[in-house]
Amino acid sequence: MKYAAPTTIDEARALLAADGDAIVFAGATDVVPQMRGGRPEPSMVVDLKKIDRLMSVSLDGDTWSVGAAVPTSVLTADAVFTADFPGLSEAAGLIGSDQIQNRCSLGGNLCNASPAADSVPALVVNDAIAVIAGGGGERRVPVAEVVTGPGQTSLAHDEIVVCFELARPAAGTSDAYLRLIPRTEMDIAVVGAGVRLTLDGDGAVSAATVALGAVAPTVVRVPAAEAALAGSSLDDAALAAAAAAASDACNPIDDKRGTIDYRRQVAGVLTRRAAGIAADRIRTRNGQQGDS
């Protein structure tokens, strides 16, 4: 197994193009355990962490650009980013442990294509765009379209996720992410739920996005739950309807991490709770702005 550490995207892509068995890695927190667990070693591993653009976080006007290989501990420590996307920051801060987060990346979390990846529902509800470098230059794809099934992505062999673009949230907007694990850390989500809400001046929901993890082969958006929340004042009936819609949207499997019934039931509960947290965040922020 060879190791390469290119400093440009073109170099990295050339290495991939020349070797159909080569793979890229960022934190390698998925790649190394997979190899140790018996997955065949590739002929070459290409380290993405020496490429500046994949390692930088910037705010340009109203658009955040987050390098695909940036350790997630950088994001959770970034107060401005975290204020804009508390739910996404929270999700990034749930991955593994401090040690893992000093290595692991959003790009790796997405491209590993686990249905349980924590940051993906939070990226999806924020309409994140993956910027992908490939043969024809760069293409911009909604994050929800990158993963096609467990372990499967829509990337070509020589394509690399460069960064994620996120529009700064509109006024009255915030997000939240919750996951259920039996322990408190070092565990894989049995269910994950991301919610983003926009509240109008009267406290009614003017926009809602809901995405669930670990309940289907890929992260799923839940339009029915979004519809149940939109236009409501987050009353119990609307929250219950959103919860029911989330449960219905699940297409889970029975496995060592949870049963179908359990995942359905909990998906509803977490959706309702995440909506409550997102709304509280908006109200708190509005309150603070009112005070100042």
């Binding site: 039996p182 322990r183 408190t184 850390e185 070092m186 565990d187 894989i188 060592k256 991490r257």
Partner: peptide, 24 residues
């Protein structure tokens, strides 16, 4: 221990064999 129907252990590691972690 979670065994498959064919008698193989499905959780032979600390990820899915859940001993408590300190923060629990």
């Amino acid at each position: 221990y979670i065994y498959s129907d064919d008698g193989n252990l499905e959780n032979p590691g600390f990820l899915d064999y859940r001993i408590p972690v300190a923060s629990d």
